[in-house]
């Protein structure tokens, strides 16, 4: 097994609140790694710290052997980590196709001069970006909506589009923040197939999810966060039996999702 991402003792404080407390975890290449925990356990904060939206107060991330810079989201994406958002964040006024094309930004090089003169290189790059965007729309199954302005897409399709846009950055690690939220059973089933296909095609997946069935069925390993601390990390079956996890979800002061 090859390590892809290593979080080393990440801590994040908001004023007096400890959102993350020395969280360490290791994600291996090619796996689907689940991150679960009650509401407010720090899952999304970990995403934000990982992708450079927040700067961690302590600890560091090592991605494929190199340390990730903090607070520089565009560098993190360039290194090969892409994310989606819990509350979908698409570019409302762009078509589905253009959303995905925008996602390809970091892998393109056209200069202002190239754009002004529309030289061969620029045109070729633009053609490839368009072509690639069509492929990705097909990949997530919404190519028929290529020309639809994204705010007019159905909820489930918006989720798929957001995944396609993230894939357009050509990530090695795809971080999905509650992709099944608000989906019905059929849509969740299709989502599961999609994530399995993404993994089979060689992209590692980090998944925050509340849908226990989806997580247990899909993930190779799972980490459980509670009050900003990692309380368990194991294969699904073992996590399910872990007394600390059961306590976090069922007992204790706060209540289960």
């Amino acid at each position: 097994m090859i390590r892809l991402l290593e979080a080393r003792a990440i801590s994040k404080f908001f004023g007096g609140l400890t959102a993350l407390s020395e969280v360490s975890l290791t994600i291996n290449k090619g796996e689907v790694y689940g991150l679960i925990g009650p509401n407010g356990a720090g899952k999304t904060t970990l995403f934000n710290v990982l992708t450079g939206a927040y700067v961690p107060d302590e600890g560091e991330f090592v991605f494929d052997g190199t340390e990730l810079p903090t607070g520089k989201p565009h560098v993190v994406v360039e290194q090969g980590i892409a994310r989606t958002f819990q509350n979908i964040r698409l570019f409302r006024d762009m078509t589905a196709l253009e959303n995905v094309m925008a996602g390809h930004h970091i892998r393109t090089r056209a200069t202002i001069w190239g754009i002004l003169t529309q030289n061969r290189r620029t045109r070729e790059e633009e053609r490839l970006t368009t072509e690639r965007a069509f492929e990705l729309l097909r990949y997530v199954g919404i190519e028929q909506f290529a020309r639809t302005v994204s705010k007019n897409l159905s909820y489930g399709d918006q989720r798929r589009l957001e995944i396609a846009r993230a894939l357009a950055t050509e990530p090695r690690l795809l971080a999905l923040d509650e992709p099944a939220a608000g989906m019905n059973a059929t849509e969740t089933g299709r989502l599961r197939e999609l994530i399995e296909r993404i993994r089979a095609d060689g992209t590692t997946v980090l998944l925050i999810e509340h849908d226990v069935k989806l997580v247990m069925g899909l993930c190779d390993r799972i980490a459980v966060l509670d009050f900003g601390k990692k309380i368990a990390e194991d294969v699904p079956a073992a996590v399910q039996r872990d007394p600390a996890v059961v306590e976090a979800y069922l007992g204790g002061g706060h209540h289960a999702q």
Binding site: V76, R89, F91
Partner: peptide, 19 residues
């Protein structure tokens, strides 16, 4: 596209690697 992305949603634009 990068400008439009940034205008529509700066956080999402950062998340796809736009500087």
């Amino acid at each position: 596209r990068a400008w439009a992305a940034m205008r529509d949603d700066e956080l999402a634009a950062k998340a796809i690697g736009i500087n």
